[in-house]
């Protein structure tokens, strides 16, 4: 695949200049040296890949630095690369309002040996991290340590599985009749332990699969 897709008739986007990117990278490399694993740039945006161990310290340094002051945590998200080791990219997007700078930090965790990875929470640096981290736990299964208990925030509390992982099918797993949602996978057998949702009846008992009830009980 060509590096730059040459598209006729369309002027190439002028990549915006990010003047404080070098200063931010310099701050991190000066203080943490080996903790900065990689620095990449694409379309004018700088991404710094950090060692998860120094992540919280690096965030605090970026927030408190006099010339940078990344006071707004714009977003924390995750990307799942199942064939890669480590598996998850936890991506932090920071914005500095006073200096109009923006930078992206990444921490890479998880993999074959660590299917439910843990990483330190940055809630002590920015309280905004709260719900972003809960969402990542809910959808990817990454636990954040150093903050209150993790709970599901978007899916129902008794849901199995983490939907945004690449091995979770888009249609979900088959649920016992009556279906609240999701559909049966077309070509795979039903994995064990998935779809424990049951129909709760008004007398408190639970019917595992209503389709198997005999006509007499109806």
């Amino acid at each position: 695949m060509a590096d730059e897709v040459q598209i006729e008739g369309a002027p190439l986007l002028a990549t915006p200049v990010n003047p404080l990117a070098e200063a931010s990278v310099a701050l991190l490399t000066d203080r943490f040296g080996a903790g900065v694993l990689a620095v990449t740039e694409h379309r004018g945006e700088t991404t710094v890949t950090l060692d998860p161990a120094i992540l919280v310290e690096a965030c605090r340094a970026l927030r408190d630095a006099q010339n940078l002051r990344y006071s707004l945590l714009e977003d924390i998200t995750a990307v799942d690369w199942p064939e890669r080791e480590p598996r998850y990219d936890i991506v932090y997007q920071l914005v500095s309002i006073e200096t109009r700078a923006s930078i992206r930090l990444k921490a890479q965790i998880g993999g074959e040996v660590d299917p439910d990875p843990e990483i330190a929470s940055v809630m002590s640096v920015w309280p905004a991290a709260d719900w972003f981290e809960l969402e990542i736990y809910d959808l990817f299964g990454v636990t954040f340590t150093g903050r209150g208990e993790m709970r599901r925030i978007l899916m129902p509390t008794d849901w199995d599985g983490h939907p945004l992982r690449k091995d979770y099918p888009i249609s979900g797993f088959s649920l016992p009749d009556p279906h609240w949602g999701g559909q049966a996978p077309l070509d795979q057998p039903l994995p064990p332990g998935i779809g424990k949702l049951t129909l709760r009846t008004s007398d408190g008992s639970e019917q595992p699969n209503i389709a198997q009830r005999s006509e007499d009980d109806a």
Partner: peptide
């Protein structure tokens, strides 16, 4: 939305 999160028709409920 034909996916895990949406009930495929309110007439299931």
């Amino acid at each position: 939305f034909n996916n895990y999160a949406i009930v495929q028709g309110v007439d299931k409920v």
